[in-house]
């Protein structure tokens, strides 16, 4: 998993370096519903549940972790 951590760290660094400060009055686009991390919580819940029970992988897509009762 060291490799993974390195990858994340590098990505984080690149992203942070490349960021522009966005003034509070310039955030119309960022406030749009289609720009949120989750645009449809119920739809996301449905898909995550299906994939969780039908595939082997879980987690990583949300802030507070989760588990799996399927395998």
């Amino acid at each position: 998993m060291n490799y993974l951590k390195q990858l994340i760290l590098s990505c984080a660094t690149v992203v942070v370096m490349g960021c522009e400060t966005v003034a509070p009055w310039d955030r119309e686009v960022l406030a749009r519903p289609e720009m949120q991390l989750s645009t449809d919580p119920m739809g996301d819940a449905l898909f995550e549940q299906v994939y969780l029970s039908k595939e082997a992988s879980a987690g990583g897509y949300k802030t507070a972790g989760g588990g799996c009762g399927c395998n």
């Binding site: 966005v22 879980a58 507070a64």
Partner: peptide
């Protein structure tokens, strides 16, 4: 399950979420 995430505004038109979960 434990998780940590970082959401970063890149500019007025884009943002990036990075998350790590251990279960």
């Amino acid at each position: 399950s434990f998780s940590v995430s970082w959401t970063q505004i890149i500019n007025a038109n884009s943002l990036l979420f990075s998350g790590l979960t251990y279960t």
